[in-house]
């Protein structure tokens, strides 16, 4: 019984850390897809870029870990603004097939660049010494890094929610998600709003990718391999909200960790099968609006 309890705690802890990373990466996808109705399959590119840019900032610029993390987040956000203005914006009115193809094209380009820069093998995530040890909580020891991931993600979630609930920008975003044409008619510049939201979403993805580089390995095929998980988080939770993907990320994080712990012979089968069933029952996800 004690062994079971201990495995339960372990799964809860690791699943929570994984779920938090999934959330940081996917929340931007949920908001941009809900806001712009854009099928952005290339969202994982920004998460991967976060990891690689942080690596480059540490090795080439000699930045310590924490500033490198911030640098990656800002650099990717700025880069995404260029992409959004030059390419994405032309396809907001296009059909989903065009959006799917365009973003798959972006994934190919990103994979190629990552391979040219770092080769096909996974890169080790750089961690500062203060994150390498174990931490004692209630008489049990946990990896410091994952505890830090959970803690910092929780802070991030709080900032994000307060930001969206309490600020003017948040109110505008919510209005535009609810009814785009209406928001436009009362003088909201949706073009600028899209760009800003896209940048924030990509920056968060980069943060998640860099922060979670030890949990989700940094390989060039990251955008393809992880895409399913990001999309599943968004699909399970529901589009266009902050809470939806949070619920989705926790469910997937915990579910995936539990499945791999208890029934490794089935891999991710149950996670995908459950997602499939859930989407049948609620095509718009758990918290998606009808």
């Amino acid at each position: 019984m004690d062994a079971f309890l201990s495995s339960l705690i372990s799964i809860g802890f690791h699943g929570l850390a994984y779920g938090m990373i999934l959330y940081a990466i996917s929340v931007g996808l949920s908001v941009t897809m809900g806001l712009m109705g854009f099928v952005n399959l290339a969202h994982g590119v920004f998460a991967m870029a976060g990891g690689y840019v942080m690596l480059a900032a540490m090795s080439r610029l000699g930045l310590p870990w924490l500033p490198a993390l911030g640098f990656a987040c800002v650099a990717v956000a700025l880069g995404s603004v260029v992409l959004e203005r030059v390419l994405y914006a032309r396809l907001y009115r296009a059909g989903e097939l065009e959006q799917v193809l365009f973003t798959i094209g972006l994934i190919f380009v990103a994979i190629a660049i990552a391979r040219l820069a770092y080769g096909p093998l996974p890169q080790a995530a750089p961690l500062p010494d203060y994150l390498k040890g174990q931490v004692e909580i209630a008489g049990r020891s946990f990896p410091m890094y994952r505890a830090a991931v959970i803690l910092s993600s929780a802070v991030l979630v709080a900032i994000l929610w307060i930001g969206l609930e309490r600020t003017r920008w948040g109110a505008i975003v919510r209005a535009a998600v609810d009814n785009g044409p209406m928001a436009e008619s009362i003088g909201i510049d949706t073009g600028r709003l899209f760009t800003l939201t896209f940048a924030v979403g990509s920056g968060l993805a980069a943060l998640g990718g860099a922060l979670g580089a030890d949990l989700i390995a940094m390989t060039p095929t990251y955008p393809f391999e992880q895409l399913v998980y990001f999309l599943v988080v968004v699909a399970v939770g529901g589009l266009g909200t902050l809470r939806g993907p949070f619920l989705g990320a926790l469910l997937i994080g915990l579910g995936d960790t539990a499945c791999k712990y208890w029934v490794p012979q089935f891999g991710a089968f149950f996670v995908f099968a459950a997602t499939f069933a859930l989407l049948l029952w609620r095509p718009r996800g758990l918290l998606g609006r009808a």
């Binding site: 999309l231 089968f269 989407l279």
Partner: peptide, 21 residues
Amino acid sequence: ALALLMLTLALVSIVFEVANK
């Protein structure tokens, strides 16, 4: 639309996992 994309993506992932495991 989106739900269809997700379902088909989930489908290919399920078949992959079955073939893999």
